[in-house]
Simulated assay, not measured.
Amino acid sequence: MSTHTFRITVRGVFDRLSTDQRAELLARAAEHDVLRAAFTSEGHLSYDLAARSAFTFRFLDSGEEEEEILEATERAEESAKTWLAERGYGYKNLRSNAEDLSQAPLGKRQRRAAAQKNL
């Protein structure tokens, strides 16, 4: 049985941040820069508060069955909500998108590598 790898993106908008919360997020903006974004099991948060109040969490999860993507999405959403709640950050418009990498189309380099293996 093969393992399915899931990439889950949880997006939302910060809502009703206090001046202190906003300052805290701005102070830590470098570690949450979109250029450093990565899919990780613990989740990676990125935002650019100077540009807009939107944020994105990126999670990496796995399962034995394709249907486990729903459970992985729920775990990612709960993890994002917990992170925000622990810090007292308000949010709205939370939505998720999940992708099973085993179902993703191969890129040009991947197709070339697969063709080389079959020769």
Rank of each mutant, 00 (worst) to 15 (best):
L119R: 14
A72K: 00
Y47K: 02
K117M: 12
E77I: 14
V10W: 02
G12N: 01
E64D: 14
Y47Q: 00
A38K: 08
L119P: 12
A54R: 07
A76D: 04
V34P: 11
A23S: 12
K81H: 09
S53I: 02
S41M: 08
L70Y: 06
A114I: 00
L45H: 04
R22I: 02
A98R: 04
G43H: 03
F6E: 05
L106A: 15
S62G: 11
G63L: 04
R16Y: 08
G12L: 01
L26S: 00
E42K: 07
L60P: 05
R16T: 14
R58V: 04
R7I: 02
A76S: 15
R75Y: 06
Q110W: 08
L17H: 03
R11M: 12
D48K: 04
R111N: 08
A38L: 07
Q21R: 01
L49I: 14
I69F: 05
L94T: 10
T19M: 05
H44E: 08
A104D: 08
E42C: 04
S96G: 09
K108M: 07
S62H: 13
R36N: 12
Y47I: 00
E65Q: 10
A114N: 11
Y91S: 14
H32M: 11
S79V: 04
S96Q: 06
E78Q: 09
T82I: 03
K81D: 09
V13T: 15
S62T: 08
G88H: 03
N93I: 01
Q103E: 15
L45C: 02
L26E: 11
R11T: 13
L45F: 08
A30G: 03
A27C: 02
T5N: 14
